[in-house]
Amino acid sequence: MNDNSSVGSGDPGRVRDRAFVRIGVLALQGAFREHRAALERSGAVVVEVRRPEHLVGLEGLVIPGGESSTIVKLMRSYGLDSAITAFAAAGGAVWGTCAGAIVVATHIDAFPDQPRLGLIDVAVARNAYGRQVASFEAAVAVVGWDQPFRAVFIRAPRITSIGPGVEVLARHAGDPVAVTSGTITATVFHPELGGDDRWHAAFVQRCADVAQARGSVAPST
């Protein structure tokens, strides 16, 4: 299932680089353990990030689901907001899921003052699919994948607009639910729930590409 699963880059020949890929999971609050497990199953070395110094030597960072206002508050009180912005500016890959997608967005509808990193040019609306009783799971088609992905949406944010250069990887009921631009990815559902690791395998591949571009990993050929 994990083969041929990378988004926008499907060269299985580079998969062996994954053993060298170091990925951080922001471990302030939320579903960081599930991301850690899925990334490890996909071949990455995983570091839990609680302080800025934990970002050193990483190719990528996952900002997990949880409560976005809690995560942002804890990020700011330990200087992780500016550290992650610098990490992304230096070419590190960043993937935000659910609450993490809110954290990486440039605009948060109705909460213009909520701190955010603004790494990807999208606007999101918090809890826009409704309260928990409206949370749902649904199969979504993903660009370049043969089989749909069973996505779990929990008090999910809705992507209400995307800027130029942002690519839509998946939609549900017409709305973008997975987007990417450069080295930044945002998914409003929870790829870490349900045991299908294709999104994680794709992110590990992307981080392997980052490592190769930086010269931190010798080319595998």
Partner: peptide, 8 residues
């Protein structure tokens, strides 16, 4: 949903 409360 309950998983999202972890560490909180």
């Amino acid at each position: 949903f309950a998983e999202m409360f972890k560490g909180g």
